[in-house]
């Protein structure tokens, strides 16, 4: 099995391997394989299209955690200029599971904050698999308050399995750190735009996700608990995760239908990791649009609108 492909992508992987082989052969011999190659490439494309046109919630959940998927620092690289990372919560330590700092988006200064996962084993551990501890959330809030002081909009990138469930995190007040961010973000006097770029894992995601505009990438997910967690509680078996993923409606499409998400940015064929550059350009455009939308509001209007949005969550006719 090719580890760069998920299990449901294996037919594509096999075809791609064949194409690669043919290319190598073509380099060595005089035989003209251009036609054959073009045929196979076309086949690969239509196979990918057909597999991706009908993904289940569980498959999307796997895509959202794809090891090759772009992370916050990749987007910072691709979309922003002059990024200066700002470290630490000024109390305890610097949590590498959340990164943040000032940068320019198309020339405009902004504050960027996001979860960060690691790529290689060592880096994964250092980033704690993108699971922040309280000091991570406190760093994030410190940066948001800095943004408020200097009238910089806040752009957050959400990609976490959840807040870290560890002894030290509990001792230092994981719950309080999350709760305090939720409260403070609701009244932060500057626009906040959040984008779910990978896994939107519960309170650990929301703690940097209270916003004026919520965007999701097509194959990202956002949920109150992981499909595995939900399945092991309600179905008493983590293997029922595909059922849980479906029941919870964790995909961008479903959440957009429910009115919980404002905007969905489509991903390249095969997912964000197949063409990060193209996706970054689309996302950048979407973010600039969202900012322009919020720019016309005064701070009072902005806060009023944000509060009303928050209060509308879950409202039903009585």
């Amino acid at each position: 099995m090719n580890p760069n492909y998920l299990d449901f992508e294996q037919p594509i992987a096999e075809l791609e391997a064949k194409i690669e082989e043919l290319r190598l052969v073509g380099d060595d011999t005089e035989i003209n394989i251009t036609d054959e190659l073009a045929k196979l490439l076309g086949k690969s494309r239509s196979l990918t299209e057909s597999i991706f046109s009908n993904l289940s919630a569980w498959q999307i959940s796997q895509l959202s955690r794809h090891p090759k998927r772009p992370y916050t620092l990749d987007y910072l690289n691709l979309m922003f200029d002059d990024f200066e990372e700002i470290h630490g919560d000024r109390h305890f330590s610097d949590d590498a599971a959340i990164v943040g700092g000032i940068a320019r988006l198309e020339g405009r200064p902004v504050m960027v904050i996001g979860h960060q996962k690691g790529r290689e084993v060592k880096e994964k551990v250092r980033r704690n698999f993108g699971m922040p501890r309280p000091e991570g959330y406190r760093k994030a809030l410190r940066l948001m308050e800095m943004a408020e002081r200097f009238h910089l909009p806040v752009l957050t990138f959400i990609d976490t399995p959840g807040a870290y469930p560890g002894i030290d995190a509990e001792e230092r007040g994981q719950s309080e750190a999350i709760a305090f961010n939720l409260a403070k973000m609701s009244q932060l006097k500057t626009p906040i735009i959040s984008t779910v770029v990978g896994e939107g894992g519960s309170g650990g995601a929301l703690a940097i996700g209270v916003c004026d505009q919520l965007t999701m990438l097509q194959y990202s997910t956002y949920s109150v608990i992981s499909p595995e967690g939900c399945a092991s509680i309600l179905w008493k078996s983590a293997e029922r995760a595909p059922d849980a993923a479906k029941a919870m409606g964790i995909t961008s499409g479903r959440l957009h239908e429910l009115g919980l998400v404002d905007k969905v940015v489509p991903e390249p064929l095969g997912g964000a990791h197949r063409n990060p550059e193209a996706l970054a350009m689309d996302l950048k455009k979407a973010l600039i649009e969202s900012l322009a939308h919020l720019d016309v509001l005064s701070i009072d209007e902005l806060l009023d609108r944000r509060y009303k949005r928050l209060m509308s969550y879950g409202l039903t006719s009585e």
């Binding site: 409260a183 956002y222 928050l310």
Partner: peptide, 26 residues
């Protein structure tokens, strides 16, 4: 905690209640 059967709607109640409490604080 949050009610799984209401999925993301229940997650958003965390933000909703916290925002209301921030008004109390103010």
């Amino acid at each position: 905690g949050a009610r799984m059967q209401e999925a993301l709607i229940s997650l958003m109640q965390m933000a909703k209640t916290s925002a209301a409490l921030e008004k109390m604080r103010q």
